[in-house]
Amino acid sequence: MFHDPVALQVIWNTLLIAVLKIIAGSIAPFAFALLLNEVRRMLFKRTVQSLVYLPHFINWVILGGILTDILSTNGLINQFLGWLGLNSIDFLQSGNWFRAILIISDVWKEFGFGTILYLAAMAGINPNMYEAADIDGANNFQKAIYMTIPAVIPIAIVLVTLSLGNILNAGFDQVFNMYNPLVYPKGDIIDTYVYRVGLQQGSFSLATAVGFFKSVIGFILIATTYRLAAKYANYRIF
């Protein structure tokens, strides 16, 4: 396995895609929850919440089908680019674009659902504190920086720490439903590789070795991050 250039490339792809997803997927819900927290009109806030949660509940089979359609040469996005006077881009045929699409679409699917915990924490902040800040003359920006953010930082730390356990999970469902042989060099990940080599080509031993490698690394990471979360953020699963 460690002499197989394809397997090494696949491990590298997995790491890169997963790390970028973790970074983008940690920032987006936090920022969105902060902005949403500034909204005072409950009807507007709830409508936005209901709409952004939706993609989380739809599986990658359907989302992959939809994205493949709107990102195709004649699809919605390229029509929009054409309207702006830009050249059309083969999003799903070029490896670099494919990686970018994986990360953007993953953030798009999950950022709304990720805001739930942050919004719950923000709702728990005592409103009297905001009133006191108002009287002291703090503006919205200052209140966000000095009150809201410090209040939700502990949760953010726990979530980011725990998400480190996903460092080798680049998202099988998503990649499997969107990739094609043209983007294998940059878009193939451990899980899709294991599936193709193991279940489709029948080399059970190589596929099991690669899969087991992933499990062991994942186990070490999760065990470590749980310890870190328990130590620094006092997080316990039970």
Partner: peptide, 9 residues
């Protein structure tokens, strides 16, 4: 929850 055998097993 922490450890999976992997797809093939």
């Amino acid at each position: 929850m922490l450890f999976h055998g992997g797809l093939i097993p």
